[in-house]
Write a protein that binds this DNA or RNA. Structure first.
Length: 287
DNA sequence: CTTCTTGTTACTGA
DNA sequence: ATCAGTAACAAGAA
């Protein structure tokens, strides 16, 4: 489930490999992954990538010449994987050479082939992710829907406090709402709440100054650490390959329901539904 | 077989 | 306006 750290890891990986390369072929294997007119998409995208930006979990590829953009949202299971002709490199998390050799696979929805024989694959098991072309105006309209980037230098304590002010919603719903802060998803929302010692169900306007401060500080701390680790790859975490986004080793609550709390060591982590999402917490360490 | 999972939007009702 | 809840999208795991 790519959230900000995973999407940022993918962005950085792709920056090294796909810019200014001529695209010789674009294969659309599942039409619905492309939103909007498909012929128009092909025409624009064939110009190649000039730069890659990101807001929250949305990737923004700047296209050559056209003044247009390719917006890519991975939703839950989307992947962007780059494969050079000789050396096999993932555009995000590490995956095994065997997996790379097997591309395209049954979940490959799009394939870009570059002049040098390398490929960029868009895989998406659940088919919720999408790619679409946007001009400057449409791109601005899309990005305007997002709140402040969680890792932007403008994301200050003062800003955070003003965003929270008057919110009657649960802190978990607040963190998940991309209109407040862009980039936090279910995994990191739970991790932030745990690190701050705050129950995810707590109403935002019931939080004390020090609780709010802890939440603010941990958003930055946890997301930065996760990027350093190359994100969290939950599915890889489950298999025994040993190839995974390294932040899995630091998860304290996500995916640990029923297991002992790593802080107090005694209590079992509980799982409930908050804001429509599975939420894991320690009923003792979080107040 | 049913239930649950995830990101996001759209919708309904309070 | 604000907020909670749910369906929808799709596929697979348990």
């Amino acid at each position: 489930m790519p959230e900000l750290p995973e999407v940022e890891t993918i962005r950085r990986g792709l920056l090294k490999n796909v810019l200014r390369k001529k695209i010789v072929k674009v294969n659309i294997l599942w039409g619905k992954s492309v939103k909007g007119d498909r012929a128009k998409f092909l025409g624009s995208v064939k110009k190649g990538f000039k730069n890659i930006g990101r807001i929250g979990k949305l990737l923004i590829f700047e296209l050559n010449d056209t003044g247009k953009y390719m917006l890519v949202h991975l939703k839950m299971t989307g992947q962007l994987i780059y494969r050079s002709k000789r050396k096999l490199i993932a555009g995000g998390h590490k995956i095994s050479d065997k997996d790379l050799e097997n591309l395209p696979n049954q979940h490959t929805r799009l394939r870009f082939t570059f002049e040098d024989g390398s490929d960029l694959f868009f895989n998406d098991l659940r088919k919720f992710g999408y790619l679409k072309i946007a001009d400057e105006k449409e791109k601005n309209r899309e990005t305007a829907k997002f709140g402040i980037n969680a890792l932007s230098s403008d994301f200050t304590w003062k800003k955070f406090e003003s965003l929270l002010a008057g919110k009657k919603t649960s802190i978990k719903a607040f963190l998940l709402n991309q209109k407040n802060i862009a980039g936090i998803g279910n995994i990191y929302a739970d991790e932030v709440c745990f690190a701050a010692g705050v129950l995810p169900s707590r109403r935002a306007d019931s939080l004390s100054e020090s609780e709010k401060k802890k939440i603010f500080q941990n958003i930055t701390k946890i997301l930065e650490k996760a990027i350093e680790c190359g994100g969290t790859t939950f599915r890889d975490y489950k298999d025994s390959e040993g190839k995974r986004g390294g932040y899995c080793d630091f998860l304290k609550v996500y995916g640990r329901a029923g297991l002992n709390c790593l802080k107090c060591g005694k209590n079992k982590l509980k799982k409930t539904k908050i804001a429509g999402r599975g939420s894991v917490y320690c009923p003792v360490c979080q107040k």
